[in-house]
Nucleic acid binder design. Sequence first.
DNA 1: ATAATCTGAATGAATACTCATTCATTTTTT
DNA 2: AAAAAATGAATGAGTATTCATTCAGATTAT
Lengths: 212, 212
Amino acid sequence: MATVASAKSRRTASRETRRRQLIDATLKCIARKGMGNTTLGDVAREAGLSQGIVNLHFESKDNLLTETLRTLANEYREQFDKTLEKSGPDPAGALLALVQMDLKPKLIDRQKLAIWFAFWGEVKSRPTYRKICDEYDRYYDSVITGLCAEVIADGAYANVTPEAAAEALTSMTNGLWLSCLISPREWDRQVAMDAIMSYLSNVFPRHYETTR
Amino acid sequence: MATVASAKSRRTASRETRRRQLIDATLKCIARKGMGNTTLGDVAREAGLSQGIVNLHFESKDNLLTETLRTLANEYREQFDKTLEKSGPDPAGALLALVQMDLKPKLIDRQKLAIWFAFWGEVKSRPTYRKICDEYDRYYDSVITGLCAEVIADGAYANVTPEAAAEALTSMTNGLWLSCLISPREWDRQVAMDAIMSYLSNVFPRHYETTR
DNA sequence: ATAATCTGAATGAATACTCATTCATTTTTT
DNA sequence: AAAAAATGAATGAGTATTCATTCAGATTAT
């Protein structure tokens, strides 16, 4: 019983702990009730804390939401980087690992998608959200374009540019998320994966053998 | 002055006219301020009418928003059907016309996209929105899957199923819309079209000649 | 060791404000 | 004159934010 550092009955916690706790509560509330119907009272209740707690730790609701988006985006980026790292030096393998990541049930469930779309839905009227998303997307785009360029060079493919291939692949995964959100019953991971593989195996045939 | 049915100074209008006017105002407000910050006062002001007007013609805000989504969806469907009709009997041509439609500046500008994403952002917490979107999507999916099946049969393509190709194409256009929303500066219709053509010309090479 | 003091995290009632909805009144049409 | 349409002030429910107060744990003094 020695090294239990944070006793569970502790009434006060460090600033960072509370902020994280509140952000987690916010994510849950947005997934359940949507962005518009999530009140600070909801967030506090979900976190098991008191009414005024959010304004104590974040100064405003606006702030809380922005930080929540940042946290969400960071989490995705960590997954992205981890996937990239684990996949070794082969660019074709890395590309496949990345698109497969986007369909992993653990990472992308309907809860998470609802949260992403909730933020995307406000992008036009909240420039800050747009900027944050753009910043991260720019990075993913550069990585994926780079991988496509390597594959194209390696296979001497003359039928596609790295930019077009990257745009096609990232757009496809984002679009597949929308299908999952709107038709959860019908939506099928296998069909989604088939769609992506139909691209890879036809555009880069010497790198992605069709198993059909 | 006899046959001027709708004089411009007319202060009262038919129910349908007013409803349409209010829905148009709602669309503008959502594009400008976002779903969450659009109030009934905003809508009334945008329409140049009085505070209580929305509740007079729609019974509630909820109702107004649902009807607005239906109108938006109908408008898109009309475009879809018109495009299909105009494109003649060739399935490959129809498919191309449909994906090109999705990138037409007239049809798809950032205003419209913002509205679509605003509704999609609420899909998870508002089952009605989901149902409406699903209903329309099911139709588009069936049409596009059918066209893909025809192209596949005609070209004897063994490398892809109609379902996978349809899913790939519709997902790609939806995903391209997200790019347009998030990176409006960078986003380029030509690159978007290249991405789609990289799919068509590689998966259905005997139907879509690469002009490169 | 014990008591006294301090600190800042947390509370939750009070405040100020927004906004959907209602409705008595006015205006327009028939 | 009666009916229909529209107005816009009033209502009240809901909610972000504030703040005086409480309290657990750390620090200091005895």
